[in-house]
Design a protein around this nucleic acid. Structure first.
Lengths: 343, 343
DNA sequence: GTGAAAGCGCTAACAG
DNA sequence: CTGTTAGCGCTTTCAC
């Protein structure tokens, strides 16, 4: 008969109690918990039974204390990136991170970090081993945070291709160039010949790449006009840019916008100016966000596999945690053109 | 001259090293760190200097091990709530939580928990003290998770008024009733007399309360027609409901929808049916989400103070952590009617 | 006020 | 394969 386990405090069962219950040593229980194969069948079973019977769950704090790992991944959200890091993107990404994390022992910690003080706090967490890895949205080139984290020896994975100076830091990104190219080519194949694009900010890789994709799709085509208007990913900039485009070429019949928000702005201006979409002007956005679904006409848009990006970020981190120092290639995920009504 | 501290391992400075540096005992350093007032001025300063000099930061794991607190708050996201828990809501809420948390020693942990297995995992985390409190979106009445957590003795704070059986569990909600009433009254004051509402699901408090608000605004008014069509917060249901409304009363001139998504659907149907918004039909949504900003015309909508709701949730949790067992009143935050073009 | 000492629950050598 | 042992870094009595 198994003796009833002594309750040390009023608390949860400890490894020691499991050991007593199973009639083995603490070491053996620890081996079982940590999946060491060097345990005999019989003891293995005895321990597993005891664990089940007692409802034992390891104390993470005690484990961390000795392993010096935290089994925690930190997701840092830079509030200043709000505009680019649009909200649907945010939610899907978190889902992806969570899902992939759920098959590991890692927990997801989140932190908003807009101020310098908060950035410092992130560095501290890393330096003190409270965090095993960091997922970071790639900031503008001048932000020292990612570099500092890497310098502190933390596994880091970036969301979005960094602008510069992040050699060897792996990142996950959508194939912005191919996505923009596919959208533009699609417009061409619909018989459109008078093009315009509304760009994102040109100090971010996404903005640059999407413009390049547009250019590359039109390169070498004859009988095509190709306009470019600057935007900043936001809706008002889309309105502004669309007016410019219309002024430069009142006969324009195809517009590729580097974000859905800008496309929504453009749509509004087009309607105000009496253009029918898509009849007079075909319009494509980027991101395949909520906005795209809810304009009228609904926007055709380039979709990023955000959820999958979240999962890849975790994989990148886990690889680094398991094999520190290993060089990791960026992960570029394919985009997809989602056809709706605007083109 | 301060002696150079011995480096125990290659690791971070420990409390012991701080003590050596400051020429005091570990106990004293601990007292300083934890803000005990019973430390002399001189030693206080010595310890503070040593901490600064060494760049000491407490090891959270070691602390947790002895205090049996985790200094972690868990935010559980039930994926099944996706539709209601719309994405802008999600992002703002996280910001609110983060912001309020940043003035406490608490960290924010997130977990998606859709399956029963994952719910169990949440309970386990709580039971094993890995989490000091839980923020939960209030689920439909039949979900056992919140009750189980409360039974396990965990501080819990709910987002949204629960449907039933959650006595004593504090929650934060927007004043849905007042918001819906204000929107409807506004329509009345614009001279509208032929009303319709598109409801949310009636098994959630938000859906019920918004319908009640609509009714209460119109109660006792003479010369007013008041229609009700069922929706489920989603866009397609808004389209469907709007068609019903139009069929019942082709002269309808005012519609209050219990979500922006449904309002966007309604807008679309209205346009298809040749109604001008707001000239022929005034339309108001609820949530003040991205969608509201990006339809054409942009939606007038009832805004919830989501960010502030996040902050209140943390306050509720902190109060419970500090004073276990204390009865806490729900927090109902005011809404605001944001006027745009649709009404 | 302050130091000394006893663990918190666990992992990781190290013998056997 | 398994038991024993020595801490991980910190808080918290308990004496002084």
């Amino acid at each position: 008969m198994p003796s009833s386990s002594r309750v040390r405090t009023a608390g949860r069962p400890t490894l020691e109690q499991v050991a007593a219950e199973a009639g083995v040593s603490r070491g053996t229980v620890s081996r079982v918990i940590n999946g060491s194969l060097e345990v005999s069948e019989s003891k293995l079973k005895a321990v597993q039974d005891a664990i089940r019977k007692l409802g034992y769950v390891p104390n993470q704090a005690a484990r961390s204390l000795v392993t010096r790992r935290s089994d925690t991944v930190l997701f840092v959200v830079s509030e200043s990136e709000e505009r680019v890091f649009s909200e649907p993107f945010f939610a899907s990404l978190v889902r992806g991170l969570s899902q992939e994390l759920s098959s590991t022992p890692l927990q997801l910690n989140m932190m908003m970090a807009s101020t310098a003080r908060q950035h410092e706090r992130v560095e501290q967490l890393v330096r003190n081993g409270h965090v095993d890895g960091v997922v970071l949205i790639s900031l503008h080139g001048d932000d020292p945070l990612p570099r500092n984290l890497v310098a502190a020896g933390a596994p880091v994975a970036l969301i979005g291709r960094p602008m510069s100076g992040m050699d060897g830091v792996p990142f996950v990104d959508a194939d912005n160039l191919a996505g923009a190219r596919a959208a533009t080519e699609y417009l061409y194949q619909q018989g459109r010949r008078r093009f315009g694009t509304i760009t994102g900010t040109q100090d971010m890789a996404a903005g640059i790449d999407r413009l390049m994709g547009y250019r590359s799709a039109l390169k070498g085509r004859r009988g095509v006009t190709r306009l470019v208007a600057q935007g900043d990913f936001g809706k008002p900039s889309g309105e502004r840019a669309m007016r410019e485009l219309l002024e430069e070429d009142p006969e324009i019949d195809a517009v590729f916008a580097a974000s859905d928000l800008m496309a929504a702005g453009a749509l509004r201006v087009l309607r105000a100016e009496g253009r029918r979409v898509p009849d007079d002007v075909a319009l494509i956005g980027f991101d395949n966000s909520d906005v795209a679904r809810n304009t009228d006409p609904a926007l055709t848009s380039v979709s990023q596999p955000v959820h999958e990006m979240g999962r890849e970020l975790v994989r990148l981190l886990v690889t680094q945690i398991e094999r520190p120092g290993q060089a990791l290639a960026p992960v570029i995920l394919p985009t997809e053109l989602v056809r709706r009504e605007s083109a």
